[in-house]
């Protein structure tokens, strides 16, 4: 087990550095509550949902089975990540088939090569988006139990600053990027919040 612990420690260090980097950025200011209409709020949520449900985001926001997905225009038929890959309980891979076995610090320049980032891991299981409706994801984003313990403003900051989130807009050659941009999505979250964070009705 020693080496696994070592590797985990290495990863934790990565995440800590990462978190520090995030804190150094200038904090976002929320918009004035009520300054955005309910209707515009829902329109902004629709944009946010387009991003969150996009394969570049949702493929790694999966349930507690820990199996990342391959889906979206560049992947053909939706299926679990090939090669029997599992993120495991740690969400960083299992027993030396860690995500980092293949996913490096940058996107592979070779077509169909592995995408990469400073950190590569699955989102926590409670933050599952894959296979969920717009309404379900919306309720989830407002619930600190299921959004990583964040206020909505902190969710906006996370989207605004987090390198792994930003990867969704820079996914490497041959992969369709998430729509809009980090800045636009952050902006949408702030507007949605100002409209009272309305959620669409269940489908």
């Amino acid at each position: 087990m020693k080496k696994l612990i070592f590797a985990l420690t290495g990863l934790t260090a990565f995440i800590v550095v990462h978190a520090l980097a995030e804190e150094e950025e200038a904090p976002l200011a929320p918009l004035e509550a009520g300054s955005v209409s309910q209707e515009d709020g829902l329109a902004n949520w629709a944009k946010i949902h387009e991003v969150f449900s996009h394969p570049r985001c949702a493929n790694c926001h999966v349930d507690d089975s820990g199996i990342p997905m391959w889906s979206g225009p560049s992947y053909g038929k939706t299926r679990p990540h090939g090669m029997f890959i599992s993120g495991g309980e740690t969400r960083i891979g299992i027993e030396f088939v860690q995500c980092g076995t293949c996913h490096g610090r940058e996107n592979s320049p070779t077509p169909h090569g592995p995408p990469g980032n400073e950190v590569w891991l699955l989102a926590p299981a409670e933050m599952q988006w894959f296979d969920k409706s717009s309404q379900e994801i919306c309720e989830q984003i407002k619930d600190p139990e299921r959004n990583g313990g964040r206020t909505i403003l902190e969710v906006a900051e996370h989207v605004s600053h987090d390198p792994l989130v930003h990867w969704g807009w820079d996914p490497g050659p041959g992969r369709e990027a998430a729509p809009y941009s980090a800045a636009e999505t952050t902006d949408s979250i702030l507007k949605w919040q100002a409209a009272g964070a309305p959620c669409p009705s269940a489908e």
Partner: peptide, 17 residues
């Protein structure tokens, strides 16, 4: 492209493509 694993080495004991 890390699809076959034939290039696997260890870096500090960790399997890496």
């Amino acid at each position: 492209i890390t699809a076959c694993g034939a290039c696997t080495v260890h870096i500090d004991g960790m399997a890496i493509r």
